[in-house]
Design a protein around this nucleic acid. Sequence first.
DNA 1: ATGGTTGAGCGTCAA
Length: 269
Amino acid sequence: MTRPLRIATWNINSLRLRLKLLGRLADALDPDVICLQETKVPDELFPAEAPSALGYPHVAFRGMKGYNGVAILSRIGFAVQDSAPDWCARGDCRHLAIALDLPGGPLELHDFYVPAGGDVPDRVANPKFAHKLDFVAETTAWFAARPRSLRAVLVGDLNIAPLEHDVWSHRQLLDVVSHTPEETAGLLAWQRTCFVDAVRHFVPAEEKLFTWWSYRNRDWRASDRGRRLDHIWVSPDLTGALRRQTVLKEARDWTQGSDHVPVCVELAL
DNA sequence: ATGGTTGAGCGTCAA
């Protein structure tokens, strides 16, 4: 039997600045596929040689100047899928979809970077919050309308912590963008269209679990005011194949690290 | 109520 497939996701917060840390991620998790968000690099400046040098010859990227940007690095060949719409018609570089060439048939993989939504949780006062809610509503409608996918995985920085123990204080964050009832309900509705939470499959809902700690805390580990913003979902037919999850908390201490840490799951397909 | 820090790329804006 072959080794389980490992899929990792990481908001790298600038690919060019953290190329060396990408190597540390590869060493630490040994993933077959790495999905990145906030690459912050236009396609014409994408460091094309770097993924191969790390052992990932198959690459797809969609970037723009300054903000956003997603990329997928893979040891396994894949075909890029371009059937999804341009969410909110902004040309925003927030989604890549591929079909991985696996022996048992293709595996559909989505890499998402959901808008952060600004500071004020009010869709009238804050257009960024409106964009975030609209984005999630559009993706939900799109996944709900298509035939139910089998062998599908969705990962990314979804910028919403849906469960009570996905934040350091449920009560204190109910009015904070990323954990408002409107956002958490929206994210769970999206999830229910086609997916189950592959990380909470292993970690009980009453246990705190975070993937992001703000740069603005003097000592992120001591204050531990984290949120679980980064997610891996799988189609229900794959739940029996789930073998392990890893939230690579140590990465938050890497020199000049991202404020997000990598998340990884193993699937025995 | 506000501030705190980081990145892109040079103004601030976004997170």
